[in-house]
Design a protein around this nucleic acid. Structure first.
Length: 472
DNA sequence: ATGTTC
């Protein structure tokens, strides 16, 4: 495949054939080599054929092959002749990350790691089919789909400060009636549940501060204990995606036929089906925010139980699987766009309306988890992200090996023992998950962060080190 | 990612 280097960390596949625009890869040599190991480049090239695409299709430094779009894919389309593609959002609608800052220091939890792992594991429903922390009936679920975090606030599961520190204040305007009934059936018992796979709950310690000013704005300092939550819309989002994919395929046979790959299926934004999916997707996003809020409440209860009266305030909550309506400058003109981010995190710099008031100077916190054996980072949205990536950066380390390969290469007990040697305590519902998520299955997060920072799309603020990791 | 191959 033809690939030209434009400048450091920026590669481009020129526009040829069916492509509407060029395709871009943001990576350094090491990550690019890994990206070349699967179909990611072909997929980012396929993305460039989307109708209404603006500027270029993009894959982030943590990119790897996915369903239709690669994970790490960003595609912005205009409202006039653009499309919406479920493969550009992902099965786990509003899969995302939130970080809580506590008033605890590492000194205070040292020696109690195992206890902490146990209590979190017992309090937060982990794995598949374990129920939710918050019980809701059908009417309440409909309200959650409509109001997201606002419902949590009204029902004493959230504070006003929580809402202020959440992307979109935890609510996107939508029509919850567009969520399939089978999706609701799955979601009703999953409000406040972690799930499985790469989802986790991690107690971390702030190890390095790179930008004192921004760290202070985010309320972070060295040795402070943070809690990172990575989860999404569970079975509800999955079912929603599945059913709309089926509808899209049924309704657009002529589109399917002309696609470079069937999984790239989309609907023209002007069509009712596109709007129905958008409404359902936004409702699932609201559900995911309520879900992460439910987990937050379980974490707060766990910390209070073990350490007495503690504070655990939301720093930020940001999704990395969603399409958003945003205004961006293209060729000197402000345009209304739909920005697909699939395994890519919004990273808005100061001055943008999306940035919460508390962070208007520092820019939006960007939360990037590493693997369970490596660092995670908090970045700030960089000015260059508007020019290079429609206000986006990577979403984490990114997989290096498939789940199947990982299960062949690792034994759960060995992984767990090695991590414990590094003072990282892992508690999981299933050994298979530990194997799938072994640190060796992931790319080097430090390299991903380096590319983001050097490009100026997301800039380093703090680095965290894992202490306790709880997963499905 | 997922009541993990409705």
């Amino acid at each position: 495949m033809e690939l030209e280097q434009l400048e450091e960390n920026i590669y481009q596949i020129p526009k040829t054939g069916e492509m509407n625009k060029p395709a871009r890869i943001y990576a350094n040599d090491k990550l690019l080599k890994e990206i070349k190991n699967d179909d990611t480049l072909q997929q980012v090239k396929n993305m460039a054929t989307l109708p209404g695409l603006e500027k270029f299709s993009i894959v982030m430094p943590d990119g790897h092959q996915g369903y239709g779009f690669p994970i790490g894919g960003v595609a912005a389309v205009n409202k006039e002749n653009g499309v919406i593609s479920p493969g550009g959002i992902g099965y786990d609608i509003n899969c995302g990350v939130r970080v809580l800052k506590t008033d605890l220091t590492y000194e205070e939890i040292k020696g109690k790691e195992q206890q902490l792992a146990n209590i979190l594991y017992n309090k937060v429903p982990c794995g598949l089919g374990k129920g939710g922390y918050i019980d809701v009936d059908e009417d309440e679920l409909d309200e959650i789909l409509d109001k997201g975090m606002e419902w949590m606030l009204e029902n004493d599961h959230a504070t006003e400060e929580d809402l202020k520190h959440c992307e979109e204040n935890g609510r996107l305007k939508c029509d919850p009636n567009k969520v399939p009934s089978d999706a609701k059936k799955r979601g009703i018992k999953q409000v406040g549940s972690l799930g499985s796979g790469n989802h986790f709950l991690e107690v971390q310690r702030v190890e390095n501060v790179f930008n004192e000013e921004k760290a202070e704005a985010y309320g972070l300092e060295e040795e402070q204990i943070l809690v990172m939550i990575h989860s999404g819309s569970r079975g509800l989002g999955h079912q929603t995606c599945t059913e709309y994919l089926r509808e899209f395929e049924k309704n657009y046979p002529e589109i399917v036929e002309n696609l470079p790959e069937k999984e790239l299926i989309y609907a023209p934004l002007g069509d009712d089906l596109a709007q129905d999916y958008k409404n359902a997707m936004f409702a699932a996003a609201n559900f995911a925010w309520a879900n992460r809020q439910g987990i937050t409440q379980a974490v707060r209860e766990s910390l209070d139980t073990l350490f007495g009266d503690t504070e655990a305030e939301l720093v930020y909550d940001v999704c990395h699987n969603i399409a958003k309506e945003e205004t961006h400058e293209v060729d000197g003109e402000e345009k209304e766009l739909l920005v697909h981010r699939k395994g890519a995190t919004r990273a808005m710099p100061s001055g943008r309306p999306e940035v919460p008031e508390a962070y208007s100077e520092a820019g939006q916190p960007v939360l990037l988890p590493g693997s369970m054996g490596t660092s995670s980072y908090i970045l700030s949205g960089g000015q260059k992200s508007l020019e290079l990536s429609f206000g986006s950066t990577a979403h984490g380390a990114g997989r290096l090996k498939s789940r199947t390969q990982s299960k062949k290469d690792y034994r759960a007990a060995d992984v767990q023992r090695e991590l414990k040697r590094d003072q990282i305590f892992v508690k999981a519902a299933s050994g298979e998950t530990i194997e799938e998520e072994a640190p060796g299955s992931y790319k080097d997060i430090d390299e991903v962060i380096k590319v983001s920072d050097e490009l100026g799309i997301g800039e380093k603020v703090v680095q965290m080190r894992p202490i306790v990791n709880v997963k499905g």
